[in-house]
């Protein structure tokens, strides 16, 4: 998803795991109607990983503990198993040497790596990324995008709000252009970049490319 700020990209993304409620319509995630009053939202959320712009790591826990805690509380894994999994994931995201650090002692890029590991620890079926690189320095951006490319290559289903058009073009199967709270254009990266149908899309792409 891409589009100007205030266009509703993040809000849309956040409705997918019911962090925002919807007024009308229906949202289906893995066969479950999210807006259904009887929906087990905690179960749904535990299967939908989310990565935030400002990382939102638990500030009072070390990097390792951030990845361990939800496994124990939500997945009810034994501590030893959660620890093993956490160490593996921190290794995978390339931050195992910082496992004992608190979030405040990590750079933005390092924090985002931990946040991705934390989301992966729940074995999500789909992952939501809300502008995961917008708060990072240029050098860290590349690292996080590479990590996300790896995830995509492994077959992870991902919904990403981003301004990184090169990245989107490379890995997206489908792109949504949003403006004024509406999905203005919906198509493959190829179609969106080469033959945008809507005037608004053309104008926006002209401004940012």
């Amino acid at each position: 998803m891409f589009g100007p700020s205030g266009s509703g990209k993040s809000t849309f993304l956040r409705t997918l795991n019911a962090l925002e409620t919807i007024d009308s319509g229906r949202i289906m995630v893995d066969g479950v109607s999210v807006s259904d009053p009887g929906a087990d939202l905690n179960k749904l959320r535990s299967e939908v990983g989310m990565v935030f712009q400002l990382f939102n790591l638990f500030q009072h826990r070390t990097a390792l503990d951030n990845v361990v805690l939800p496994q124990i509380v939500v997945r009810r894994r034994p501590r030893s198993e959660a620890l093993r999994r956490a160490r593996d994931l921190l290794e995978k995201v390339g931050i195992s040497d910082r496992a004992g650090h608190y979030p405040s002692q990590l750079s933005g890029g390092q924090q985002q790596r931990v946040a991705i590991a934390r989301a992966l620890a729940m074995d999500p079926k789909v992952m939501l990324f809300d502008e995961p690189t917008s708060a990072l320095d240029p050098e860290s951006v590349t690292g996080i995008l590479d990590l996300m490319k790896d995830l995509a290559a492994e077959g992870m289903t991902m919904a990403v709000v981003t301004h990184e058009m090169g990245f989107a073009r490379e890995i997206a199967d489908r792109m949504l252009f949003m403006d004024g709270g509406l999905i203005v254009e919906d198509g493959s990266p190829q179609q969106i970049f080469q033959t945008p149908r809507q005037e608004r899309t053309k104008e926006f792409l002209r401004q940012i490319l």
């Binding site: 795991n17 962090l19 905690n42 179960k43 749904l44 959320r45 535990s46 299967e47 939908v48 990983g49 989310m50 935030f52 400002l54 939102n56 790591l57 638990f58 500030q59 009072h60 805690l69 939800p70 509380v73 939500v74 946040a115 934390r118 989301a119 729940m122």
Partner: peptide, 27 residues
């Protein structure tokens, strides 16, 4: 305590009481 802490914990599937007890109150 920043709203992001609630959000992150909610998004991971934690319920209200564990969020309060394990994430928000310690901070």
């Amino acid at each position: 305590v920043p709203a992001g802490q609630w959000e992150a914990a909610t998004a991971l599937g934690l319920k209200r009481l564990p969020i309060l007890g394990l994430v928000v109150l310690p901070q």
